[in-house]
Write a protein that binds this DNA or RNA. Structure first.
Lengths: 189, 189
DNA sequence: CCATGTAGCTAATCATCGTTAGCCGAGCTG
DNA sequence: CAGCTCGGCTAACGATGATTAGCTACATGG
């Protein structure tokens, strides 16, 4: 693995485990195997490390969501696939998702604004999916906002507790949580 | 309001808004109307401020949960009431709940251990509620763990976005989210 | 009216951290 | 072999921030 990739991976692990502010460059260096100042031969700043993790994560998440709904027009199927993508991403990249959700506050402008925009866009996608199902008469919820937030929060919660080697396989969690999402909108099996 | 209560309230507001680490004693003092060192005439440390917020919050949450299920034996009704209490607490004390969820990492031992114990106890309550419903044949989920996590995460998500003066009233959110919880376990109206 | 405690302030302490400066050895290139 | 670049190191800088020390004004109670 490239030195830089290694640093990024370690930073992600530590940001997820102790938080951005609580992680020092010396911490990162200690795991990578060098002193804090040497890190600057590979990265431009600690803030940059965070900014890149977060923007890449949000972009990937958004892309995964768009791709998931691209091949069908059925509202139920669209919401199911979007939720599957959402949950799968949060299970497979739980550290990225975790940091992405929790450390927005630590991001400095203009990165924060950009990440927030991406997130708003992502949320809008889900709200639209719910709205479409309501309009089609296949979902029964009184507020598309509450329902879409509830579904999105499933993923964020997942990123907090999911472990690759835990009790549940990725597929099991993806399936069960997608089922939950459809039940939330009143369209469960 | 007592000076000390005022300080606690300001600390809570700032911890919720910028995070514990990012909040300085000077920040708190600036809002209260005094210099950082003067705060120590009322408070023993910044860490103590956090520890008290978190332990009080967890104790209140646990008490609210226990009280909610105390007066009925019906599994469906018990889960509904527990969820109502859960969601209501997160709506009414969103700052406390938000800090309580996010700043466990910033809590130093032995406080952290105690708060984690309380949280584990609280989670166990919900898992037992779900298990009881499954045993009684009124819920249909394959994993009580996933279902209870999903329900608990609804509250945590709520604390992140809910605003007292927002689009939805507390009662509306409580009702809708409790409905979501029952739908998640396959017992929705 | 004085004595005392309360609650503020400034200055100082002490530690931590991100980041920069400048040195140096190893290894590739001509 | 000479020199350059890469990537490490130590030392130092500069800022920040929690906390302590020690001073002072004021209010209260004897």
């Amino acid at each position: 693995m490239d030195r830089l990739d290694h640093i990024r991976a370690v930073a992600l692990e530590l940001f997820a485990g102790k938080g951005y502010e609580a992680t020092t460059m010396a911490d990162i260096g200690a795991v990578v195997g060098m002193r804090a100042p040497s890190l600057y031969k590979h990265v431009t700043s600690k803030q940059d490390l965070l900014a890149e993790i977060m923007t890449v994560t949000m972009r990937e998440l958004l892309a995964a969501g768009r791709a998931a709904v691209a091949t069908t027009a059925d509202p139920v199927e669209r919401l199911r696939r979007a939720t599957e993508a959402h949950v799968r991403y949060h299970a497979r990249h739980r550290r990225e998702a975790f940091v992405g959700n929790r450390e927005i506050r630590s991001l400095v402008e203009p990165h924060r604004g950009r990440v927030l925009e991406l997130r708003a866009e992502y949320e809008t996608c889900f709200r639209d999916l719910v709205r479409a199902g309501i309009a089609a008469g296949v979902f029964s919820v009184t507020s598309e906002r509450l329902a879409s937030y509830a579904i999105l929060d499933l993923g964020m919660g997942l990123a907090a507790w999911y472990r690759e080697d835990g009790e549940h396989s990725e597929d099991a969690v993806v399936w069960q949580y997608s089922e939950f999402a459809l039940r939330i909108v009143g369209s469960g099996g």
